[in-house]
Design a protein around this nucleic acid. Structure first.
Length: 304
RNA sequence: GGUGCCAUAGCUCAGUUGGUAGAGCAACGGACUGAAAAUCCGUGUGUCCCUGGUUCAAUUCCAGGUGGCACCA
């Protein structure tokens, strides 16, 4: 049994993961791995609720502002880079904190995802063009032909799923279904999952308030500064995509703010849905810091 | 104080010539393995203000009450 433990702090957006993870990292005198698919971009700050400079100076945090919106990123890349970083850091620490709300990124580190061949960008763009021209039915029929197994279990109304299976096939000649093994990779460290959640009404109030604070901190200007790159996937993000519509003149200012709040609430709900089925998570109220620390210490003593 | 109008889902409101009701928005549930703050699927969640009356049957009609709005004093 290893004596290395990764403490994973997860939960919906706006619940207070950053503050708690800093407290935990200070307590164990260690560093933080961020698992946040948007805070990772250096061009985004206010709208992603990235930790501020004071917080970043208090505890060293990795994968914050470490990449650019102009480079493609993915959960698979995060898995490789994060595992790499974690293994390096475990040479100096017995415990590490990982925190974030990107469900797939967390699972990529905790459980691993399959190795899937690189996708040829040209092929992806061609398929997207076909989808936009002919709709989903065309691609669906093709998937049925080349990979009936995946077709039988795929979400056939979700074009991203179908596109992905096709682009894998045309890039590598291998069926997507043959690549899916649900790996459950064995990590050489213990994983302790701390989930934060609270009454839904309170969470919604916190989310709404946080959006108002983002606006007062200058989110409008930040969104303007990246407006010209709005087509980038990295900017298909709550807090930015709504403001882009406002800049376009297609929705009002007040409408944009309301939509940011609504979409944040919905994002939080999807996170909760995802995390709910993970029975390894020990849930706490974010204010319950004492018990959280007590719980972590107890578990680490048991494991080591 | 008087008169009139209104009271139906979380909100804005339809509707039922008397047979316990439906839109929009919001909300809620779910899926998810190289785009994941993405993408996709599903769900009306209701003392029809309260109390009586008429009726086989009242959210609907009648009376009174309560609350809100408007106008007149």
């Amino acid at each position: 049994m290893t004596n290395k433990t990764l403490i994973v702090v997860l939960g919906p957006t706006g619940i207070g993961k950053t503050d708690l993870s800093i407290d935990i990292a200070l307590k164990f005198n260690t560093e933080i791995i961020s698992a946040d698919s948007r805070q990772i971009f250096r061009e985004l700050d206010i709208g992603t609720a990235t930790p501020d400079s004071r917080q970043l100076h208090t505890v060293k945090q990795h994968f914050i502002k470490s990449h650019s919106i102009f480079n493609d990123y993915s959960a698979a890349k995060f898995e490789k880079e994060a595992i790499d970083k974690i293994e390096k850091l475990f040479k100096h620490y017995d415990t590490l904190v990982m925190t974030g709300g990107s469900m797939l990124y967390i699972d990529a580190v905790c459980k691993g995802i399959d190795d899937i061949p690189d996708v040829d960008k040209k092929i992806r763009n061609e398929l997207i063009a076909r989808y936009e021209k002919n709709g989903i039915e065309d691609l669906r029929l093709e998937l049925k032909k080349i990979d009936p197994e995946y077709y039988s279990k795929a979400d056939l109304k979700n074009h991203k799923r179908i596109l992905h299976a096709l682009e894998i096939f045309y890039s590598s000649g291998r069926k997507y279904s043959s690549l899916l093994t649900n790996p459950q990779k064995k990590r050489n460290f213990n994983i302790l999952k701390i989930g934060l959640n609270t009454d839904r009404h309170i969470l919604h109030q916190q989310i709404n308030k946080r959006v108002d604070i983002m606006i007062s901190k200058g989110l409008i200007d930040e969104a303007k500064s990246v407006y010209q790159n709005r087509k980038l996937n990295s900017l298909n993000t709550v807090g930015y995509k709504e403001l882009f519509q406002y800049f376009d003149g297609s929705i009002s200012y007040n409408n944009a703010i309301e939509l940011i709040k609504r979409n944040s609430r919905r994002y939080a709900r999807r996170q909760i849905t995802w995390f709910r089925k993970d029975n390894k998570i020990q849930w706490f109220d974010p204010d319950d810091k004492r018990n959280i620390l007590k719980f972590i210490e107890g578990e680490i003593n048991k494991a080591h």
